[in-house]
């Protein structure tokens, strides 16, 4: 078996090496991917057509917003799938815990540091979400930070404390709400006569002109992404760490 594996690796490796020899030079400004019509349009026109200085966010949330909506759905599926597979409902009292009883929140240094850090992390996360279309950042990054703040809380003070702030039901509702915001915003465009996710058609209800409507809408969908990512990060962590029992654990 190892021998066949070796053969497969050698063949695929050779293919990849041969293909690499055929590529345009590293960082070549005249390669199709850097100079092509599509990337040329993004580089020259993004600010004009969307009023968003961060080109990456414009590609992610507007030009290819349909992809990003489904990427958010992928994250949602990952969370729901893990809950669906791991979560054990009903009585788990009979089964002894695999882990020693955690002395929850006994360490005052860890607890105090965590209480100091969590608000700061969350504040910065909100900034990253809100400022995503002007500077590096966005819904995915901000959402991960928000989710991490809850995980930090669970690590330092025990899962029950974190669950009081983000219960299981709450996490699922929050995750679904995020996608409803994103996809619902796209459907709203249909009612204003545009195509799906055509933010420009929303300019009657949003302040500013058509281009500003695109910029505002990007903020809205980034917030939707952040909702889903936050909730799913914490749901995945809490289910994996407690083998789906959502009690004690760690």
């Amino acid at each position: 078996m190892k021998f066949f594996g070796f053969i497969a690796v050698v063949v695929v490796g050779t293919l990849l090496l041969v293909a690499t020899g055929d590529f345009p030079g590293w960082g070549n400004p005249h390669s199709p991917a850097s100079e092509g019509q599509v990337s040329g349009f993004y580089i020259e026109q993004t600010v004009n057509v969307t009023k968003v200085p961060n080109m990456v966010t414009a590609v992610l949330a507007d030009f290819r917003g349909y992809d990003t909506m489904f990427e958010t759905v992928v994250i949602f599926i990952a969370g729901i799938g893990i809950i669906a597979v791991l979560r054990t409902f009903g009585d788990t009292a009979g089964k002894a815990s695999d882990y020693p009883e955690p002395d929850e929140g006994s360490d005052i240094i860890v607890r105090s540091t965590c209480h100091l850090m969590v608000p700061l992390i969350q504040l910065f996360a909100l900034y990253v979400v809100a400022h995503g279309h002007h500077s590096p950042g966005g819904g995915f990054q901000g959402g991960v930070m928000l989710g991490a703040s809850y995980i930090l809380l669970a690590l330092a003070c025990g899962l029950p404390v974190a669950k009081r702030r983000m219960g299981e039901r709450k996490a699922i509702v929050l995750a679904a709400t995020g996608i409803i915001i994103y996809a619902g915003w796209g459907v709203a465009c249909l009612f204003f006569g545009g195509n799906f996710l055509d933010y420009a058609s929303l300019d009657p209800v949003l302040p500013g002109d058509k281009e500003m409507a695109r910029s505002h809408s990007m903020l809205v969908v980034e917030i939707g992404v952040a909702f889903t990512v936050t909730a799913i990060m914490f749901a995945i962590y809490s289910n994996l760490a407690t083998r789906g029992r959502l009690e004690k654990g760690l």
């Binding site: 019509q37 599509v38 349009f41 507007d62 030009f63 290819r64 349909y66 465009c189 195509n195 933010y199």
Partner: peptide
């Protein structure tokens, strides 16, 4: 054909999905 986000082609190439 349906253009997501209503993005029209630019010089013959689709910029959106």
């Amino acid at each position: 054909r349906y253009r997501m986000g209503g993005w029209h082609e630019s010089s013959g190439y689709e910029v959106g999905i």
